[in-house]
């Protein structure tokens, strides 16, 4: 029955039309508007928006925050994936569930939770850290932590299924041939997961650059100090300042590049 339905001309056209208009309304139109406004305001405005000192700082900070978060999540993600795929230990199922938590928890809640733990005045560790001269909240470290949190599952969820599917045979064979755990990781595990890892990293990069909610709460949003590009876009939009469209275009282009990267990686995955 479903086959016949799909073959009939009217429904095929209806489906096609529906799908296209859905994408058009949700994606093409808004993104197109942002580009249109940017073009309208001209090249000069574009250059100005990107070269203002707060923009330059915001780009640098975004690079540092997203870069660090991706690095940490890559190391941590591969570690956790290996842990979950290769070892039995108490609390494994809990860990497996916790990994997915960031997907379902609102980033704003993440931000507040981090303040509860690391906040200067009321947090658990806050006063200790302050005495040690380390700023977490309202400083880049807190922003990195928040970004790490929201992007946490991406690497794990890409790498874990590949590890599970591959099984332990190759690693055990390498072991019997004399390879130490580090040699096994570099020579066997890493090549096995490399495409899944690359995919997870690209997703993490995209997610980390785009993060807004959690970072907004923990950053303090100080222009020129703790303001990432997304926060700056928000400020420009809120204050009807120039630059919101131009910076948005840059973010969209970066996201598009990530998608292109992914489309190159995808065919290799699972091969």
């Amino acid at each position: 029955m479903p086959d016949q339905l799909l073959k009939s001309r009217p429904s095929r056209w209806t489906l096609r039309y529906l799908a296209l208009s859905y994408v058009a309304v949700l994606v093409v139109l808004p993104v197109g508007m942002v580009f249109w406004r940017t073009v309208q305001q001209g090249w000069r405005a574009f250059v100005d928006a990107l070269t203002s000192s707060e923009s330059v700082h915001a780009f640098q900070l975004t690079a540092v925050v997203a870069g660090s978060a991706v690095l940490i999540n890559t190391v941590f993600g591969v570690g956790v994936a290996i842990l979950l795929a290769r070892y039995r230990f108490p609390g494994k199922r809990v860990l497996n569930l916790i990994i997915d938590l960031p997907v379902s928890v609102s980033p704003i809640v993440v931000g507040f939770a981090l303040i509860l733990v690391f906040g200067f005045r009321t947090g658990w560790f806050g006063p200790t850290l302050r005495d040690a001269g380390i700023n977490i909240i309202f400083a880049p470290p807190g922003m990195i932590l928040a970004t790490c949190f929201v992007a946490l599952p991406l690497v794990v969820r890409e790498v874990l299924p590949v590890l599970q599917e591959t099984g332990v045979d190759q690693e055990q064979a390498a072991r019997s041939l004399g390879a130490s755990s580090w040699q096994r990781f570099v020579r066997i595990t890493l090549p096995t997961i490399k495409w899944a890892l690359a995919y997870g990293v690209v997703l993490s990069v995209a997610r980390s650059i785009g993060e807004f909610g959690a970072v907004k709460v923990v950053s303090g949003n100080v222009s020129g100090q703790t303001q990432t590009v997304t926060l700056l876009v928000d400020q420009h939009a809120e204050q009807f300042e120039n630059g919101a469209y131009q910076l948005s275009v840059v973010l969209i282009v970066v996201a598009a590049l990530c998608i292109v990267a992914i489309s190159f990686i995808r065919p290799h995955e699972g091969s």
Binding site: D169, Q172, A173, A174, R175, S176, L177, A179, P191, T192
Partner: peptide, 27 residues
Amino acid sequence: AQRRNVGFVFQHYAAFKHLSVYRNVSF
């Protein structure tokens, strides 16, 4: 295991999929 100097052959070959036959044997 890595220090027992024991050769192990598995039911499902456990071939190193990303390495050539030569590199598998030379591992």
